[in-house]
Design a protein around this nucleic acid. Structure first.
Lengths: 227, 227
DNA sequence: CTACGGTCTCGTACGCTGTAAGTTGCTCGT
DNA sequence: ACGAGCAACTTACAGCGTACGAGACCGTAG
């Protein structure tokens, strides 16, 4: 992990420069959004940029590093909370922003499963989450636990959601719900009943329900611990 | 998705049978636990079983299908709640069981990110989650939302945790926290403060904190909706 | 003007992957 | 004895990440 973040490429001095780390990352994010994590290859990325495969390796040390860069790139879309907001609305807003990110870039949640995020934008996001909590007088530990709790929920929800909608980068067709239902109707009626009804729930509504639950639970603890 | 679950291999009749779907899945789970998802290859698995690579394909249609089978295999370790328990303790117990699974098989959370889980054990687990909630008189929709909320938290937490402890299958050394801290000390002091303190928190404690939050939030809504 | 060192791009090649296709031998029912 | 079907193997192919080294271009020093 002498990672990308420690040694940026020295500022260039003169050359034609048809390629650049920024351009590569931008195109990579675009292709990731379109086709998902599995389908991205250095060769295809290079082709999309009109370059030879190995040319990318001057600007980016490795494919994994490139994906870390892409992750940090999209963390740049995270909208920071307004400075004056109370911790609850700030937290709620940030979680909505995170979910927006997850929906726009379905590969995000799979990426964070495989790489640590310690790029500047990721760190700025993390830092900004602490600010409203600490300003409200919480201890570092309680703030961290609260943040860990809500963002765990959001990422977990994004992970589940990515398997039902927006199957980007997956080549298999969606599972045949009717067939599954028939298969398990006798043994697991609850599950089948859920399959039959699930189409009517709004995923948006489910997310709000969960987020409300989590934030309420945190609020109760937070007010108890502060008094 | 004419998936593995729809067409099992016909029961064999006679032959030597040094290989079998069960043996392959068992060994695959073992290797996944040891080395993680990325490091598993059909060739290495076959070698570990003393067979030729292509021999596996008689018992398993594809590598993705094999991983689905492995996922379902470990769902078999999920311990179902006692039939008489109230929904809250049942739910809490199941989430602990799920977390136990996540810690024992770090590749699990990455696997569910890429494959739907509709095998018999996965479905049995899902079904068993509904039972205590419905028995408590909740509507299907509320039960489903509640379950979705807690398990999102648990999987999200497992995803985050997998990046800090148990870096199975990752070849990069853990990031140098001191270096990162130095890098961001001026710009993001909250983040750095968190890095400095985080070693003293128990991950177990963080999980309990979050789980309590989520379940409390659900409890409030559930009792309100039932009255 | 030449020579050089740094910056960038590219061509070739290696070892790895999943798996399609075809071959072989085994055991069985007839 | 013989075909059928099951199970394992061999070969081969297309694609992957990327190590290595050869060039192309540049600003500058001699």
């Amino acid at each position: 992990m002498d990672s990308v973040w420690f040694s940026k490429p020295r500022p260039s001095s003169g050359q034609p420069l048809g390629l650049s780390r920024e351009a590569i990352v931008r195109k990579a994010v675009e292709m990731l959004d379109a086709d998902g994590l599995q389908k991205l290859s250095m060769r295809k990325l290079a082709a999309a940029l009109g370059a030879a495969p190995m040319s990318l390796y001057w600007h980016v040390p490795t494919k994994d590093a490139l994906i870390e860069l892409c992750l940090d790139e999209i963390y740049g879309e995270f909208v920071l909370p307004d400075p004056g907001e109370d911790w609850e609305t700030a937290l709620r807003g940030m979680m909505h922003s995170l979910r927006h990110l997850a929906l726009k870039h379905p590969w995000w949640v799979r990426g964070i499963g495989e790489f640590n995020s310690i790029g500047p934008n990721a760190v700025a996001m993390a830092d900004s989450m602490f600010e409203p909590m600490l300003r409200a007088g919480l201890s570092m530990a309680v703030a961290a636990q609260s943040i860990s709790t809500v963002s765990s929920f959001v990422t977990g929800y994004a992970l589940a959601e990515a398997n039902f909608v927006a199957r980007g980068g997956m080549d298999s067709p969606p599972p045949d719900l009717a067939k599954i239902a028939d298969m398990y109707r006798d043994e697991h009626p609850n599950y089948v009943k859920m399959l039959d009804e699930q189409e009517i729930w709004s995923l948006e509504g489910q997310f709000e329900f969960g987020l409300d639950c989590v934030i309420d639970g945190i609020k109760a603890r937070v007010t108890a611990l502060r008094s």
